[in-house]
């Protein structure tokens, strides 16, 4: 399990973030999704055997948002 923090670009509306949160929560291997609207960040804990941080970044980009930075920290 690793803790992933993603800094997102250009978030204007809270509904964008709720959308990202809902979508990410539905992925397997993802627990404890926290979206920080004001900081423009998404924090989550993932099981690297099931999903990779870059997969999540890809999904976010699919939704039409940009991921500026990904930091991964061992738990």
């Amino acid at each position: 399990m690793v803790k992933v923090t993603m800094t997102l670009g250009q978030l204007s509306c809270p509904s964008c973030l709720t959308k990202i949160q809902k979508v990410i929560e539905k992925q397997t291997g993802v627990t404890d999704v926290q979206t920080l609207f004001n900081a423009g960040k998404l924090k989550t804990v993932i099981d690297q055997e099931k999903i990779q941080a870059k997969d999540l970044a890809h999904i976010i980009e699919q939704l039409g948002y940009t991921v500026e930075k990904i930091t991964i920290k061992e738990q």
């Binding site: 509904s15 959308k19 809902k22 539905k26 939704l63 039409g64």
Partner: peptide
């Protein structure tokens, strides 16, 4: 078009968005 694209992309993940 950007609105429609966003709406559809969210729907792909089964989320009904604004």
């Amino acid at each position: 078009s950007p609105i429609v694209i966003q709406g559809i992309s969210a729907l792909r993940y089964k989320v009904v968005s604004i």
